[in-house]
Design a protein around this nucleic acid. Structure first.
Length: 960
RNA sequence: GCAGCGGUCGCCAAGCCAGGUCAAAGGCGAAGGACUCAAGAUCCUUUCCCGUAGGGGUUCGCAGGUUCAAAUCCUGCCCGCUGCACCA
């Protein structure tokens, strides 16, 4: 381990000194720009990042070896609320959080003190992570590195330019929408920022406006269609209500509701304050029929829910029925409100929805059926939900429902809400169906956020073009394409600015900061020019819109731009060249969780801003788990990249990650596996060394031909796999399959001193280099090659070196080995002597004839025999021929066509020679004397007359 | 609920799109053996069941279907994982 560690350190330094990963434009070479989404610096990089990034790096290294001019840049994401929030938690002394920083991230006390400044925190993790990225051996051009936010002013200028261009094209618009809002943080509260209420979103209630004296009772409901069945009103007798002027009208609502409405763009002025009981017993009018009805006490009513005013439809709402029944059965409850019990008794349910499986009054039936006791019974909630669902999907509105009579509820719901609104009989308000509490422990409300900035991902034309962009790109794996298409359709306006957190202020609206998923979409273009910005120390002020327009669009007069910006003309041209050379992005890879947001935004924004430079490839991979569990700091199974490298080394970490999985499957990080892979790396090193040290034998025999031949297939497989980002398959082949080839060779040959073996090793090292670059660099050097393997030429599969005969002969030997062992196992014999009999040459003649026929048609025995009998030699032994043919006919008909072609091409194999040559091998394997004969050798030793059962590729076997 | 991915011989994981080479790659684990004074490393064998001659039987989430032939194609079902928006 110690040795491997030193090797890695040595080569990392060598790469750095030789600057081999610094890539500059070179028109004579094809370019390849690969990227990994910059990671968010609220913590150290972990092995999950490592997984995706290693895929990028393996591809980069592969392409570099293929001769491409490869650029793999790197940057850090600091934008957003999270770092600011984390820093805040340090400031306020959140013990759990601080413990995690100490224990998981290994932050020292001294550094911890600095974390009260979010920039220091981000900077700390950036330093740490850069170190890890270097040590794992990613082939990065560090000259282009940066981090986001206004703390990196030149990048901020780029974001400003991006926003301006988007707005100019009409892709950034303003809108007013309701959000879940934390009054303390003064910002929207996303799902992950919540202590309570995951998944809860603002819902719009319809408020039916019932007239009462000089005011309205705006009763809240999700089912305004039930207005036709209203019988009374519910008010909580003990809750606080107000009469308030709301946008010019007098409303009677709960006090809580009045406060809520203030946040929803309503002018609310409280006129008077009172307990609910004060209006109970009064009468009000239905907005549709002028029917006079009674306000009754409803203890189930929550003043915290919507307006705290509820109208009653006992025929269709279990709560309403229950509450009414309670009052009718216990008239004493009415006493304190001075209501005449007879008037309440006279209230009858009004049936207005017909629904299959129920009679006139579904709510009544359901309550009886489920045995709900009263309005306080928890089963009432259940019954309500059930009935709502039923009536919505299957309910038909009855004749008393005016224009909507005879229609299905779900059909008319939307237009009904709109109609009521237009006729002025209803209004609406937002509220949360369940409580939401922010992480800062403040209960959240709904706020209608005014004039927020949105990216207009709802734009149909934009969507269409984005689909085209997707279409022209290579997506790995292909199964992700459909997902992307769905996401493109599904996206709507995306809020692209926030009020708080780190980031770049919107240039035209400084109170707003560009949000994280919006400043991370086209920044790859910034890599191309940041090299110069850093080299020539170009200041943010110099990076005007005109400069960017020139660099990215070639717009404007360069002379004037150079003068105005005080950037050298040559420098500007160099930057322009650099952009033109590197763009578009050839490959971007991320975990699949970014498909519904970042990766799709990445496409959208390139369509908008760089339509000539659309991304060429996108890779999506699974999400890494740790020992089968989701990785998380609180679970204590958080594995940082740094720790992984410390424990197992870079090469082992890389290979273990790559071997974990490909496609969209979730790979799993297992200590056992990594440890083992580390052993393999060590083993490779040892084997390579022994081959290098002993190579001297010049002779090229059958086994050498075989090894070089099979290696050609491995080259092809690895090349194709990595090209299509099947990184697991690629690594598996480069590491294990090639290893097995070498192992078989050594086992058969019983020596490792062939020069061909060393040649084969040269191929192997190169095949493995993208995955385990350090150990390959070391062995490449040891084998005596000049230069870095990182820059060596990728092996090319050479058809001419494929030797089918050698391969088929070798597979013959393997078959014989296997068959012999099988016999030994079945008979439980300990062999003293083994005899092999190779098939007679007439059998080969028949066999090959059959193969040839089988290429085009299914071979029938009768036709075949007719043809064979035209050959006088065969005719003489017709009986034997017929017997043999019938034995192999099934095998031949079942044989897949490429195998038929192979064997035909190879023709007759000299099995006798092959077997004789392998005699000593078999003797060693079975620890017995081995003799080989031809089937028709008259001198053969064959007491059990086995020889005649010999078939091509299937010699007969006799064991004593 | 909507959408995406998946369910393979102890575990991880290929194969499935282009049906026969599939009892089904590779890795791990396990058992046995070689080497060694010993341990480790390495190498070999076995690892669904049966079998005294290279063979046979039962398998690829479940149930059907298509086909000479299905892990692979079709239909229905069951079970996991992930995403679903003001947020990285």
């Amino acid at each position: 381990m110690e040795v491997l560690g030193q090797i890695e350190e040595k080569w990392r330094k060598a790469w750095e000194e030789a600057k081999i990963f610094e890539a500059d434009p070179d028109p004579s070479r094809k370019k390849c720009m690969v990227t990994f989404p910059f990671s968010y610096m609220n913590g150290p990089l972990h092995v999950g990042h490592g997984f995706t990034a290693t895929r990028v790096d393996a591809y980069a290294r592969f392409k570099r070896m293929q001769g491409y001019n490869v650029l793999f840049p790197w940057a850090w994401h600091w934008t957003g609320e999270t770092i600011a929030g984390a820093s805040e938690r340090v400031k306020t002394g959140d013990e759990d959080f601080i413990r995690a920083l100490r224990e998981v991230d290994g932050v020292s006390e001294e550094d911890l003190k600095k974390f009260v400044d979010p920039a220091c925190m981000a900077s700390y993790y950036t330093e740490q992570s850069r170190e890890a990225v270097k040590r794992i051996g990613f082939s990065i051009d560090w000259r282009r590195e940066f981090h986001t936010t206004s703390l990196y002013p030149t990048f901020s200028k780029f974001i400003e330019w991006q926003c301006e261009r988007l707005r100019e094209k009409g892709y950034i618009v303003q809108g007013t929408y309701p959000v879940v809002w934390c009054p303390h943080d003064e910002s929207p509260t996303g799902d992950h920022d919540r202590q309570v209420g995951e998944g809860v979103a603002p819902e719009e209630y319809t408020l039916m406006k019932f007239k009462m004296d000089d005011a309205y009772l705006p009763a809240a409901t999700f089912r305004p269609e039930t207005i036709y069945g209203v019988t009374n009103m519910w008010i909580h007798p003990d809750a606080d209500y107000v009469k308030a002027r709301v946008n010019g009208e007098q409303w009677i609502i709960s006090e809580i509701a009045a406060n809520k409405l203030k946040e929803q763009q309503r002018k609310v002025k409280t006129v008077s304050r009172f307990k609910g009981k004060e209006i109970i017993g009064k009468h009000f009018l239905s907005p549709l029929s002028d029917r006079k009805m009674l306000i009754l006490p409803g203890w189930f009513v929550s003043p915290a829910n919507a307006t705290g005013v509820v109208y009653s439809v006992p025929a269709h709402a279990p709560y309403d029925y229950l509450a009414l029944r309670d009052l009718q059965e216990k008239p004493e409850l009415l006493k304190e409100f001075g209501i005449d019990p007879d008037e309440v008794k006279k209230i009858e349910s009004i049936s207005m929805i017909r629904v299959e499986g129920f009679g006139e009054h579904p709510a009544v039936e359901l309550v009886e059926q489920m045995g709900v006791k009263d309005q306080y019974d928890s089963k009432a909630e259940e019954a309500t939900k059930l009935l709502y669902k039923k009536e919505f999907h299957n309910g038909v509105l009855k004749d008393i429902c005016g224009d909507y009579s005879g229609r299905m509820v779900y059909e008319v719901k939307e237009s009904l809400i709109r109609d009521f609104r237009e006729r002025g009989v209803s209004d609406s308000m937002y509220d949360l169906p369940q409580p939401v509490v922010c992480r800062c422990m403040t209960p959240c409300i709904v706020k209608v956020l005014e004039e927020q900035w949105f990216l207009k991902y709802s734009d149909e034309a934009w969507k269409e073009k984005t689909k085209e962009a997707l279409n022209q790109a290579k997506i790995y794996p292909e199964s992700a394409i459909q997902w992307f298409l769905n996401i493109i359709d599904w996206l709507r306006e995306w809020p692209c600015a926030r009020k708080t957190g780190l980031g770049t202020p919107l240039p035209w609206s400084p109170g707003w900061i560009v949000e994280t998923l919006s400043d991370s979409t086209v920044y790859m273009a910034f890599y191309t020019i940041n090299k110069h910005i850093r080299e020539y120390d170009i200041k943010a002020e110099q990076l005007t819109e005109e400069v960017f327009d020139y660099l990215f669009y070639g717009k404007g007069n360069i002379k004037k731009i150079a003068e105005k910006s005080h950037i050298n003309r040559e420098v500007l041209e160099g930057m322009r060249t650099e952009f033109l050379y590197w763009y578009p992005v050839d490959l971007r890879i991320s975990a699949k969780e970014l498909v519904p947001n970042h990766l799709t935004f990445f496409l959208f924004q390139h369509v908008a801003l760089f339509p000539e430079y659309l991304p060429k490839g996108i890779g999506v991979n699974g999400v890494l788990s740790i020992e089968g569990n989701k990785m998380s700091k609180s679970k204590g199974n958080f594995v940082t990249l740094r720790n992984a490298i410390n424990q197992y080394g870079a090469d082992a970490t890389r290979c273990a990650l790559l071997l974990g999985g490909e496609g969209m499957d979730d790979p799993d990080w297992r200590r056992e596996n990594v440890r083992d892979v580390r052993g393999k790396i060590q083993g490779f090193h040892n084997l390579a060394n022994s081959i290098i040290e002993t190579a001297k034998e010049e002779e090229v025999g059958h086994l050498e031909e075989w090894l070089i031949s099979v290696l050609q297939h491995r080259i092809k497989k690895v090349t194709e796999s990595i090209e299509t980002l099947k990184t697991r398959t690629a690594t598996e082949n480069a590491l294990f399959e090639v290893w097995n080839d070498f192992r078989w060779y050594v086992r058969r040959k019983e020596r490792t001193d062939s020069k061909v073996l060393k040649e084969a090793l040269e191929i192997w090292i190169r095949l493995l280099a993208p995955f385990a670059p350090y150990i390959c660099e070391e062995t490449w050097n040891k084998i005596g090659k000049e230069g870095f393997v990182s820059l060596a030429e990728w092996p090319i599969s050479d058809e001419k070196k494929v030797n089918l005969k050698a391969e088929e002969t070798e597979s013959l030997i393997e078959n014989v080995l296997e068959d012999t062992s099988n016999i030994l196992r079945a008979t439980k014999m300990v062999p003293k002597k083994i005899c092999y009999y190779s098939a007679a040459s007439w059998k080969w003649k028949v066999y090959l004839t059959m193969l040839e026929k089988a290429i085009s048609t299914k071979v029938a025995l009768s036709n075949l025999m007719k043809e064979l009998m035209t050959d006088p030699d065969l005719k003489r032994i017709a009986e034997k021929v017929a017997k043999f043919a019938s034995q192999v006919i099934e095998e031949i008909n079942m044989m897949p066509s490429d195998k038929k072609h192979r064997r035909l091409k190879v023709g007759a194999v000299d099995e006798s020679q092959a077997l004789s040559e392998a005699e000593s091998f078999f003797e060693k394997e079975f620890n017995a004397k081995v003799q080989t004969y031809r089937e028709d050798d008259p001198q053969r030793h064959d007491p059990k007359r086995k020889a005649e059962s010999a078939r091509p590729y299937r010699p007969a076997i006799y064991i004593e």
